[in-house]
Design a binder for these strands. Structure first.
Lengths: 339, 339
DNA sequence: AAGCGTAAAGTTACCGGTAACCAAAAACCT
DNA sequence: AGGTTTTTGGTTACCGGTAACTTTACGCTT
């Protein structure tokens, strides 16, 4: 812990120039001769000068920092989004500050206020649930805001989302194409738009193929692994159990796979499983999980790019950017077993 | 996005007092009559004033913010540590800013410099690997630093660690107590002290029981799920396969469980599995994983408390705090099968 | 009534930078 | 050579707070 902060003034006096000259050198502004530039740079190097971010923010009005607010950093899919944001921020020469709300609304409002007031130039909010609860908190942000979330209502800020509905359609079509006729669905959280959209895709996918969705085949899974386990178990207990299970996210799909194996059945020989999200782990389990890929990293990059465009006032800003989802076929799905 | 930042001066003129008075009210300093206090507070509420963090930091020399630097926010165990840090920071009325290095050294140095220079009052570094690479970067931090990492050399800053060696001893003792005599080990990354300590615990645990560690039973797993899968598979291929497997972390233990089931064997009836870490998922898989609990959240809280002590100059600061590990017995271990 | 102590509020200066404008020196021109 | 431009560097003020000190006002003592 060093305690002699070197300031602009120190450099200036050492180099025999004014603070302003040093500032210009540091910020690569024109109007400085090569000779003095070199001299100043040398002294900066020698003394190990780093600009004071707060001073800079206060005087310049910019922070060269982006903020990303997430509910918590536990879930894999969130860390993927953050990774995307970090990528773009880094290549734009900006720093990224992560802040968690721990699912706490007041904590959240506070964060937005504090961050947007001089700590960051822009804010990327990742709000998989409860978007509307924060809508007004976001309005009083003092910097541009982009939200990564699902919503079907229009919001007063740019939204980045994935095409949950279409992804679900793809998953169902895949299973039907393999000959499955009874397809179970493990639902997510009822309070998220994304989950409802996936359910809608499942239903309409069946209807389009001339099948009637059987309510008995739809079980709540809460997006968790134990939830998926329990849901799958109850599906398998049915007198006429499904030959394929579509889970609303990868985590509950993992639970479903476990339940199936636990019954002494095999994936995909006896029961096929499809997930949703394509978190890294989906490719690391056995059998590797067939899943609907949500472009998590891209959601982070796209959201951050929108933010940059907003910030610089150039480039397009899409009010509602819906990124495509994609079916990744791996080993957990196969032809329906003949009865 | 609001754009009329309310400042101290605005409040002051509205209330007919000086900026200083408002500042004192905001910071709950004495020397203000109840009457004016109420008046000022009302106007603050009305106008929606929030202090400008940068201005505050610049003038006051404090930021009321702690920084936590992590290599990446993907791995579960890191998010647990962060959660612990957040808990303590929150109850101390401080904000927590998370910054990732994406495993990049230069990125890292930059972060430390920037954060410690006016953005945060203290820094908690989580460096599961490559601690020494950053040691000198940390020395030039301008704020107190506490490191959560494993190292057996002494460092110029407080260290928080878990007792990997003893945890491994517990795991081995548990398996031996169940009658297992051939215990496989899936190693972690050779470049981390923690991994080596766990290996040492495994070896000495066997030796203490009068068994000779068989090098053939030690396989690299790289701390990953596929790594654990491959390692377990090769262990099971042995002419004299182990009846129990101890994995250096939970992730590779998951892989091992999959490999065992894949062979048509059962956990724990045919092969017992023990992990290390006790990430939340360990309790969500089937069978639930017996594992050595590393007090991840506590490492975050303890580290942050040390940081606070350092910051306030009161309370004890332990130079090397080693938190105890604990065996959590769940369903993945059972008596050794009779041959 | 003068003197004094204390509580309440105000003054001044400064934290470390940057914006916007200005001044001096060097280079260019006719 | 003298005036004009360009280049290079400096001045001044200010961003929005806080520390440290001073002033004001009031009640109390003797």
């Amino acid at each position: 812990m060093r305690s002699n902060p070197v300031t602009l003034a120190d450099i200036a006096s050492q180099a025999g120039v004014s603070k302003m000259t040093v500032s210009k050198v540091v910020n690569k502004q024109p109007g400085i001769s090569e000779a003095t530039r070199q001299r100043v740079l040398r002294i900066i190097e020698e003394l190990g000068y780093t600009a004071h971010p707060s001073a800079r923010a206060l005087a310049g009005g910019r922070t060269n920092t982006l903020g990303i607010v997430v509910p918590s950093i536990g879930p894999q899919y969130i860390s993927e989004v953050v990774r995307g944001a970090d990528l773009v921020a880094y290549e734009a020469g900006l720093d990224l500050l992560i802040s968690t709300t721990q699912e706490d609304t007041s904590h959240e409002r506070q964060n937005v206020g504090r961050l947007s007031r001089g700590l960051v130039d822009g804010l990327l909010m990742v709000l998989p649930r409860s978007l509307d609860r924060y809508a007004d908190a976001l309005k009083q942000a003092e910097v541009p805001v982009v939200v990564v979330a699902s919503a079907n209502t229009t919001m007063p800020f740019p939204l980045v989302d994935a095409d949950h509905y279409h992804g679900a359609r793809l998953a169902v079509a895949h299973l039907l194409g393999l000959g499955h006729r009874r397809v179970g669905f493990i639902a997510g959280r009822r309070d998220t738009t994304a989950s409802l959209e996936r359910l809608r895709g499942y239903r309409e996918g069946l209807l389009t193929a001339g099948l009637t969705p059987d309510p008995v085949l739809i079980r709540p899974g809460e997006y968790t692994q134990p939830g998926g386990f329990a849901a799958a178990r109850s599906l398998l207990d049915l007198p006429d159990p499904p030959t394929a299970i579509f889970a609303a996210n990868d985590l509950s799909a993992f639970g479903a796979m476990e339940a199936i194996k636990d019954r002494g059945l095999r994936v995909p020989d006896d029961v096929s499983v499809v997930g949703f999200d394509d978190i890294p782990q989906a490719n690391q389990v056995h059998p590797a999980l067939t899943t609907v890929r949500q472009p998590l990293v891209e959601m982070g990059t796209a959201g951050t790019r929108q933010l940059l465009n907003l910030l610089h006032g150039v480039g397009p800003v899409t009010n509602r950017l819906v990124l495509p989802t994609e079916l990744i076929v791996r080993a957990s799905t196969g032809p329906a077993p003949r009865t």
